[in-house]
Design a protein around this nucleic acid. Structure first.
Lengths: 139, 139
DNA sequence: ATGTATGCAAAACATTTGCACCTGG
DNA sequence: CCAGGTGCAAATGTTTTGCATACAT
């Protein structure tokens, strides 16, 4: 039950919040836009407004439950924060997203921030490419 | 003169295009928003519309003259494409941007894409942090 | 001249906010 | 019950587009 997770982060367990958290958990593999979460709610028969979806996702972000990303395309995508940091490999043909981490890269990033006198707070690495299934398809 | 650079990429050398390219070249160190380019034009006494700024920057991107980035904040920033790839270190306090490249990271990225069967087309690495001048300021 | 580029205003999106009403603890 | 949460509609900020006019070649 997701209501306890909400209370743990200091949020009242309201129906919209519970449903939105469930949707994010059910779609762990995806990186969803606010609009997509809204659609999922409506398909589930829930009568929640889009404005609430935005408000709740922002609260979830502040609470550390989700992470907001700015990939290409003028809109944000959200994913469940599962604690472990990772980077992204995005297929430019299919939109498929693979998550990975590389200790060498992590370490180099720390070193670079330090070299320039920065205290690193966060970082984003996105590799864009063509996944194997699409490499032979000449569009 | 920037008109020849425009013709080289197949764009007619019109006044708005020339002026916008000059502004991008003059502000090499910055990553400018469309609105900022527009302001710079007006300050230079040029009567160019914001819509044209967007159209021209998009054409420049298609022509490979500039690169469009989506840092945080719901808007795109543009920088002159100087050929050499680099990543970004962004100060979350001041907005200052430092460019860098790290051969170890570059190589690891190639390796990771390969490992997942991807043909890498591009990548973006942004390190967010607090630059030295801001680290002692407790807001 | 003539097809393309531009300016302006309106449209299209993504996201936020004001406010009256509803709901969870 | 009552503070906080929600829905709706309207506001905001960014980027795109339609169309009549202006310009580069």
């Amino acid at each position: 039950m997701s209501s306890s997770e909400l209370k743990n982060v200091g949020l009242k367990a309201t129906l919209p919040r519970i449903k939105i958290l469930e949707i994010m958990q059910k779609n762990r593999a995806d990186h969803m836009r606010a609009e997509e979460v809204y659609q999922a709610l409506r398909e589930g028969g829930e009568d929640v407004g889009l404005a609430t979806v935005y408000r709740v996702l922002t609260q979830f972000e502040d609470a550390g439950l989700v992470i907001r990303h700015h990939f290409e395309g003028g809109h944000a995508v959200f994913e469940l924060n599962e604690g472990h940091h990772h980077d992204h490999l995005v297929c430019v043909k299919s939109g498929k997203v693979i998550e990975f981490t590389d200790p060498v890269i992590e370490e180099r990033q720390q070193a670079i921030a330090k070299k320039y006198g920065f205290k690193m707070t966060d970082h984003t690495l996105i590799i864009y490419g063509v996944s194997s299934e699409y490499q032979d398809n000449e569009d």
